[in-house]
Amino acid sequence: MPASSISTATPDAVRRNARPYLHGPETAAMAAAVEAGQYGHGPQADLFEQELAHYLGVPDVVAVSSATVGIHLALQACGVGPGTEVIVPSQTFAATIQPIVALGAAPRFIDHAPGTLCVEPQAVREAITPATRAVLPVLYGGRPVDLSAIATELRSRNIHIVEDAAQAFGSRRTDQPARTTVYSFGPIKQLTALVGGAVVPRSGQEAETLRQMRFLGITSSQTDRIRTTTYSVRGPGLRGVLPDINAAVGRVQLARFNEVAALRTALWKAYAQALHGASGVALVDAGEDAVPFNCVVRVSGRDRVHRIMRDRGIGVGVHYPPNHLQPAFAQWTRPLPVTEQAAREILSLPFHPAMTPDDARWTAGALLDALAGRSAQ
């Protein structure tokens, strides 16, 4: 569609960058969970864990209250703490970094690849120090990150991989190094439980450790605790369980996840086709194996384009300002030229399953008009 053919009327679906997508039965599932009277981790959460494991083809899944909590617990379980470092990209949400700092460790920020905004093995290798305890790759936009090229080196140094896959539920995975993977089920994720997350552990022992840690280090289950006169606290922990009400929503979402994945894929393809070959705009590649979480482009004069499109009521955004330049993490700042250049150019276009391919094509046309300095026709 020629850019000049767009109308002045902004479709309702593109007024927001993202929005929750519910199928309808979630409300009834929540009501049933409320009526059952189990508001902490209960039967719905147990079933959700089992169904997630089956869908992902893994032995076990540990549900948690958020991906942030999941990252915190996974890092702590592999020995991250004072005196250690975690290699992590700066280009991510602050939720990736705060657990590192909360554990008393140091984030060692690295650059990402320009075309994907994801880290590559060589950048990780160059950042390793004697204090490195973990690598925390971020699957930006849903794109899998493969660190198999340095797997042997990481293993020999006892460096663990903990993936921030908050944006990557459903993305296809190839054989990769042993890793712990953390998903988010927040409001606008590919699969939502309204809030929540899950950890895919590397082993049964790690699963047991995570289950203990997600409930304050207490070793016995809630069912067992109410049947006895005491319980045992054996180690560190947080209150990080996923409530049954949220698990009930997640189960409804999981049952229809393939539908959402198809909608997101079709939307991504519509954007890619509409922007193919366009001057002055580069689409950040999510890869063929991703269930896309967002649609991010790189444009010159980003702030001007952002302002023009927001003035038109189009829900563009920026995901995310780099963390190595944030005041809270200033003591770990180091030069990251690729990240800093991308930070001046990235723009997130409206992207959620309530949009249609026509909405994507309309938004692409509006973007091209903004880049050309044209007014809406």
Rank of each mutant, 00 (worst) to 15 (best):
residue 305 V to P: 07
residue 306 H to N: 11
residue 307 R to Y: 04
residue 307 R to S: 10
residue 307 R to G: 02
residue 308 I to H: 13
residue 308 I to P: 05
residue 308 I to E: 14
residue 309 M to Q: 07
residue 309 M to F: 05
residue 309 M to H: 03
residue 309 M to T: 07
residue 309 M to P: 06
residue 310 R to A: 08
residue 310 R to V: 04
residue 311 D to E: 15
residue 311 D to K: 12
residue 312 R to K: 12
residue 312 R to N: 09
residue 313 G to H: 03
residue 314 I to H: 04
residue 314 I to F: 01
residue 315 G to Y: 02
residue 315 G to A: 08
residue 316 V to R: 01
residue 316 V to Y: 00
residue 317 G to C: 08
residue 317 G to Q: 09
residue 318 V to R: 12
residue 318 V to P: 00
residue 319 H to F: 11
residue 319 H to R: 10
residue 319 H to P: 00
residue 320 Y to F: 14
residue 320 Y to G: 02
residue 321 P to L: 05
residue 321 P to S: 07
residue 322 P to L: 03
residue 323 N to W: 03
residue 323 N to F: 01
residue 324 H to L: 07
residue 325 L to D: 09
residue 325 L to Y: 01
residue 325 L to W: 08
residue 325 L to V: 10
residue 325 L to E: 10
residue 325 L to Q: 12
residue 325 L to A: 10
residue 326 Q to P: 06
residue 326 Q to L: 13
residue 326 Q to C: 12
residue 327 P to F: 13
residue 328 A to T: 11
residue 328 A to W: 11
residue 329 F to E: 02
residue 329 F to N: 07
residue 330 A to N: 08
residue 330 A to W: 07
residue 331 Q to H: 13
residue 332 W to N: 03
residue 332 W to R: 03
residue 332 W to F: 11
residue 332 W to S: 00
residue 333 T to R: 15
residue 333 T to G: 09
residue 334 R to A: 11
residue 334 R to Q: 12
residue 335 P to W: 05
residue 335 P to F: 04
residue 336 L to Q: 03
residue 336 L to P: 04
residue 338 V to E: 11
residue 340 E to D: 14
residue 340 E to I: 04
residue 340 E to K: 02
residue 340 E to Q: 09
residue 340 E to W: 02
residue 340 E to M: 03
residue 341 Q to R: 14
residue 341 Q to Y: 10
residue 341 Q to D: 15
residue 342 A to R: 09
residue 342 A to K: 06
residue 342 A to I: 15
residue 343 A to E: 06
residue 343 A to P: 00
residue 344 R to N: 08
residue 344 R to W: 04
residue 344 R to A: 12
residue 344 R to Y: 03
residue 345 E to W: 00
residue 345 E to L: 06
residue 345 E to K: 04
residue 345 E to S: 05
residue 345 E to T: 03
residue 345 E to D: 07
